[in-house]
Design a protein around this nucleic acid. Structure first.
Ligand SMILES: [Zn+2]
Ligand SMILES: [Zn+2]
Ligand SMILES: [Zn+2]
Ligand SMILES: [Zn+2]
Lengths: 151, 151
DNA sequence: TGTCATTTGATACTCAGTTTCATCAATTGA
DNA sequence: TCAATTGATGAAACTGAGTATCAAATGACA
């Protein structure tokens, strides 16, 4: 079963209608290996209206098909979710996104439970990089570092 | 030197003018142990205009005085930065923020450098909790868990 | 094919944040 | 001490992202 099919399947299985707009949107977003913004889809998928694009993205996030990535500034990016639990490596120059998961980190975060009276409900990790492609294309690290220190 | 003094000092040292608006804003934001939104400051500090509040917050983020926390939805929250490098524990119910830092995690993230051709420029970790106070006040974990899985 | 709840989309709206620019105020230095 | 200079302010208008409305369209299923 292809990615496209599995996404459509999941919507069907959960009682959502398979409409022309939704199929067009799925077709478009699975092409974005490196993630996309809502407005990019609005522009690309002319068959679907603005409201429908936003509604469909939200639906797919709810269904676990898409990851929503809140950027430091600007609109969030979305990526098709691969691994069940994972985090993101984001290029600060081109915005491309890859997934990762480190058992050591997961364990360390898990052990934070019960350190105090709080109940941990989730966590999020983002690693910001200048990807190989952007560096090869001449993007410099230093100009970027300042605004992405995340210290 | 108090927190208030050290913030004002830093602005002075970096060549920014110590104006009435800035002092009023600093006075207000240091009172928010648990973080605040830009609009909260706009409401609270009537002596400063909307634009000035946003400009001042941005200035303080640039100076490392404030942390900007992009929420999953809604406006970002800001907190006064304590430790030099740290991450955040955020209550999904009341929005209160605490800092943490785990050497194990820092090391693991550091070791990701050079795994591939990317250059790591920073990282961000957020741990979402239902804080003890909210739980005591009757907030339930289950209703929250779904929308904050961050998987 | 008919039924009908779901979905759609044009439009208007909200909300967060930025730009503009005339005015104001902190610093400089004569 | 008092311009001159430059940085800072703020009302108001604007932008961009996303949401609400609601009549019309359309999938799903019998
Ligand atoms: Zn993801
Ligand atoms: Zn994790
Ligand atoms: Zn912080
Ligand atoms: Zn760290």
């Amino acid at each position: 079963m292809t990615l496209r099919e599995s996404i459509i399947q999941k919507l069907e299985d959960n009682g959502f209608r398979i409409t022309g707009s939704r199929v067009k949107l799925v077709d478009s977003l699975i092409k974005h290996e490196e993630g996309f913004t809502a407005e990019e889809l609005v522009t690309e998928v002319r068959e679907a209206g603005r409201a429908t694009v936003y509604r469909t993205i939200r639906l797919l996030v709810d269904q676990g098909v898409l990851c929503k990535l809140a950027m430091d500034s600007g609109a969030p990016r979305y990526t098709v979710s691969g691994m069940a639990h994972h985090h993101h490596i984001i290029c600060v120059h081109c915005g491309s996104v890859r997934e990762f998961r480190q058992t050591v980190i997961e364990r360390a975060l898990k052990s934070m439970e019960d350190d105090d009276g709080d109940t941990v409900v989730g966590h999020r990790i983002e690693v910001f990089v200048l990807c190989a492609a952007c560096r090869a294309a001449g993007a410099k690290v230093d100009s970027i570092r300042a605004e992405h220190q995340h210290s």
